[in-house]
Every structure is written in C-alpha cells, then in structure tokens.
C-alpha cells in the first residue's frame, strides 16, 4: 500500500490520543468494529470509517458515528505515550540504508528533521558531513545520524534509563527522565547526540503540548535530543522525515524482518539484503562493535560532483 493511502490513519489516531483521549472501548466492541485486514478496495470507499490503534496494538476500523470520545487528562495521555514509546512496534527491526553516491549535500534532511523536532539551527539529529579519509581518496558527503546500534554504548552508560533501546531497534531518549549528565554524548562514537543547552527553540509555543517520546517534542532544557528514526511516523506507516525530504534518493528505510527497504524519494521498494549485496553496503566504524542499524552504500560512481568550496575545506584539514 502506498504511503498516501495510509494517510488518514495518522490524523485520526493522533487527534484521538493527543486531543481527545482514547476511543471508548465500548464503541470498539460494539459491533461496528471490523479488523483492518479486509479487502483493500472495499476499505477505500468507506469514508465514514476510521482506523484506530487499540491499546492492544490491533489496528481496527470503526464507524465514525459510533465513536464515543473520552476526554483524558494530560497525565493519562502522557502515560500512554510513554508506555507506547517504550514498547515500540512489535515484530519490526527497522533499518536504514544511505546511498552515498547520491548525496549532494542538499541538507533537506537536516532541515526537515530540525523543523519537525523543533531544533535550533546548530542542533542536528542528522548532519551531512564532508568527508575525505586521505589525500588521494575521493571526498564525499556523509549524512550522519544516530546509528541506532544493537550494542548501543550510549544506552549502556545512561544512569537513569532515560535513553533506551526498543525491541524494534530504535534508540530513544525520554526527556521526562533525562538528567542531563551527558555521559551518552561522551560514549557515542558517532557524535550523534546533542543537548538543549539553553531554552529550546519553541519552548513557549510547546508549553502546553503533551510530551511525545517518539517525537521528542516539546524539547526540554537541559536534556538530550537525538535522532528517533521518526518513531511517530513509523507508527503511522510513514517514512521518517529526513527520508521523505531527500530530493536525491539517498535514503532507503524499511524493516529488516521484511527484507525490504523503500526509497524516500522514488518510493520504490527493494530487497534490503540484495541492495547491500549489489552495492557493497557497509556500516560506520563496525570495528567498535556497536552493531549499527544504519548501512551505507559507498560513494562509488557519484552521480553528483563534490562542491569546490567543500573540497578546499577538506584539503586544509588533511594537510
């Protein structure tokens, strides 16, 4: 199913959780509910029906008119979001593949990420780096973010379980818990973490929002913020913000268990392992034993030239 067709699900679900609270359970049981796995064509026509994810993680479809809206307190919504954010999406093992031969430093990924996570310009969950290993090897651009390691050094050192690994592979940070000790920053070899050193960018506007650990908004002063693999979007069947924003087809995102990744630009889905096998996929600093969930395809046969000003910068660094 295309991303577009999944769209209504997000709106309804988020509206429910964030503004109205859960759907009355009675309405769910009350006859009108049928499971989502019904025929694809039939579903599209049912304008008056909406999809809801139950607390048991079952996606169900119900009649809009049969819904009882239960207004829940902010605290209950927060508790729900926190619980959901720790459990992850069952059965998934998210992976990302970045094709370095396509990156031309458009930085759209950075911009999309910063705007969706309310970050300051100097804070980035994803950062496109200008790289060159030695004077004779070619320069290239490296979009770098949290590698969502399977052996995460940052999670290991966290004293309060604020940053944690989920069963679906995502490493998240809980800003209701973080004490700002920055041990994780020290431990991360990928420099993937950043702190809200001062008042967050949209602190005043976000004041009344319920904290969503899967989006890490509102950002909180004195706590860590980092790439979340757009966990909130994945729940709605959508690709991460950076992946969708890339105009150059650099990003692939998908589920290792399904052996499929989808390109964020072309939306084409390919076999994950075959993509790595055909293009010599590798990981960043695998020698550290962090077991990243992000894979890179080498910048072989770059489709774009490396910009001159960046070249000059690297030459200076390598001298």
């Amino acid at each position: 199913m295309s991303e577009q067709e999944e769209k209504p699900k997000k709106k309804t679900r988020r509206e429910f959780l964030q503004e109205l609270g859960y759907v009355g359970v009675g309405a769910l049981i009350g006859g009108s509910a049928i499971f989502a796995g019904v025929n694809y064509d039939k579903r599209k026509k049912q304008v008056d029906r909406i999809k809801v994810l139950t607390a048991e993680n079952e996606l169900i479809e119900i009649d809009k008119n049969g819904v009882t809206k239960v207004v829940k307190s902010k605290k209950e919504i927060l508790t729900y979001l926190q619980k959901e954010g720790r459990e992850g999406i069952p059965g998934k093992r998210w992976v990302m593949v970045l094709d370095l031969s396509k990156c031309k430093n458009a930085q759209r990924c950075m911009a999309a990420c910063q705007s969706s996570h309310h970050l300051r310009p100097e804070q980035s969950h994803i950062n496109t780096l200008k790289m060159q290993e030695s004077i004779n090897t070619p320069p290239y651009y490296l979009p770098k973010q949290c590698q969502h390691c399977d052996n995460p050094p940052c999670v290991a050192v966290c004293p309060v379980d604020a940053t944690y690994k989920r069963p679906d592979g995502i490493v998240l940070i809980d800003n209701e818990r973080c004490i700002g000790c920055r041990f994780c920053i020290a431990a991360c070899p990928y420099s993937a973490r950043t702190l809200n050193w001062t008042k967050p960018l949209h602190d005043d506007e976000d004041k009344d929002k319920t904290y969503n650990v899967e989006l890490n908004v509102p950002q909180r002063k004195g706590t860590i913020t980092k790439c979340l693999f757009s966990a909130d979007r994945l729940r709605d069947g959508k690709l991460p913000y950076c992946v969708s924003a890339c105009p150059n087809g650099v990003f692939y995102f998908g589920d290792e268990n399904e052996d499929a990744v989808t390109n964020g630009t072309t939306k084409v889905t390919v076999r994950f392992k075959k993509l790595l096998a055909d293009n010599g996929g590798y990981q960043l600093m695998p020698e550290l034993g962090t077991k990243p969930r992000i894979y890179y395809l080498p910048p072989k046969g770059k489709t774009y030239p490396f910009q001159e000003k960046d070249k000059a910068l690297l030459d200076k660094e390598l001298e």
Partner: peptide, 10 residues
C-alpha cells in the same frame, strides 16, 4: 547536570 532537579532519579 543539565537537570539538577532530577537528581533523585539516579
């Protein structure tokens, strides 16, 4: 600490 108010969390 970035959040000294959460000292007891430790």
């Amino acid at each position: 600490m970035g959040r000294p108010d959460r000292l007891l969390y430790v």
